[in-house]
Design a protein around this nucleic acid. Structure first.
Lengths: 243, 243
DNA sequence: TAAAACATTATGTTTGTACATATGTATGAA
DNA sequence: TTCATACATATGTACAAACATAATGTTTTA
């Protein structure tokens, strides 16, 4: 791997460093939780300041590609990222976003008897309680714009978790569950009374509705969730290419 | 608004600054595209260095809450949440589906002057006419469930085509245009009068709205289209996988 | 032997400084 | 009037340096 930057190039050094880091992430050498070179050494090797290096690192950490730990080091977040990382990005970002302590939100945890659809998905019976997390969200400056319910079977979360941390993080670190696949169904519907009240709108007003099935690496069901997004405040972007 | 930070607090200054900025964002004072105080002044006012301030600003910029422009300033972004994902299946499926000869449908062909968005996409001027195809569709036994407008520039279809054949087929065989990439934006909205009339429903009733940009292999714009799907009659499926 | 104290390592926080570059505005000549 | 120039303004990039703090490893001590 070329481990040098072009200081003459009009492309900013932190951008070049970012690109290089993205390549390093793909390198098998840094895959299985192995640590990247420490910041000071790497900065020296690239002949840039630590500040500039951190500018690049921060971006990838924010995207969830790298994980830093004070006193330990920086490692690649997940074991297998390849060329189509765009695909996963949004998914993990949303995963990550779930735990971000944003002002306008409520989190409600409860144990419920699952509906048949959910019980079927988790391969359990309807008399086995599962965990339900409900969260109402909005932009810091605005009104609430979406409401999501997450459902988890007993094999996943225990309900005792400290939900200050990202859900995704809890699943991965505490329960060793790596989410891998997501199947979503997107549709429009009119708000029912419950949702209308939550999102402070009229019953019948247009809602973007999303059903999501999440599986782990062995295709075992990990999570089922339902999202209700207020119209005109959410756009779902899809990019598809003929392969 | 309290415009000071606690330098004694164990909470890092850039976190405190971030919190303060989130409050500022909510303030009507900075709403309609009005600029925030410039970085140097703000940093002085908060008695922190510009670097530390920028650490906080960067986070909000990354979250899409703030927009910075070199030489101009920093302003609060308009409220709009977006998410990205990828899928292949639905694209080719719908391509194919377009041409299926279903009973209940209407096809309307006309030449129109494009709106600015469309002209921009096709890289033409608004005084150059383009082809517009409108189609209303439903199941043979049921009501109409969706309405789509397809827009094509003069470099594509001529309007003389026999639209009995699949659109997709005509493009490929007669004009040698191979569609390759599609970018879509999916959202929910209330039906306006026109759409409500077409789909035989009430104005304001929930509609799944899809905007689609289609490109060929050289990433040249090929088609722009708008789809209106009656709620509860259409589900959009997306499957995303970690690499 | 196990707990406590210390040392090492790597990231986290913060400052000050300097120059580059894009944008908008005021100035002045053709 | 119009175009080019110069200047002011605000963000963008980059460096060096210092100290704080968390995790881990190592040594000392009870």
């Amino acid at each position: 791997m070329k481990i040098a930057l072009n200081h003459k190039s009009p492309i900013p050094l932190h951008i070049q460093a970012e690109e290089l880091l993205r390549k390093m992430i793909k390198d098998p050498q840094f895959q299985n939780g192995k640590l990247l070179p420490n910041e000071v050494d790497l900065a020296n090797q690239l002949a840039i300041s630590r500040t500039t290096l951190r500018q690049a690192l921060n971006k990838l950490v924010y995207e969830g590609l790298l994980i830093r730990k004070k006193g330990v080091g920086t490692k690649v977040a997940d074991a297998m990222i390849s060329s189509k990382s765009v695909n996963w990005l949004s998914f993990s970002q949303e995963m990550k976003a779930r735990g971000i302590p944003i002002r306008n939100f409520e989190l409600h945890v409860s144990w419920i008897y699952p509906e048949e659809v959910i019980a079927n998905f988790f391969n359990i019976k309807t008399d086995q309680k599962i965990l339900k997390l409900e969260r109402l969200r909005g932009r810091p400056e605005g009104p609430f714009v979406y409401f999501v319910s997450y459902f988890h079977p007993r094999t996943g979360l225990t309900g005792e978790e400290d939900f200050k941390r990202p859900l995704y993080d809890i699943l991965e670190k505490d329960h060793n569950i790596i989410t891998e696949l997501s199947k979503e169904e997107i549709s429009a519907k009119g708000a029912d009374k419950f949702i209308a009240a939550k999102l402070e709108t009229e019953p019948g007003s247009p809602i973007l509705f999303r059903k999501r099935f999440v599986y782990d690496q062995a295709e075992r069901p990990v999570e089922y969730n339902l999202g209700y997004y207020k119209a005109d405040s959410f756009v779902y972007s899809v990019e598809s290419r003929r392969s």
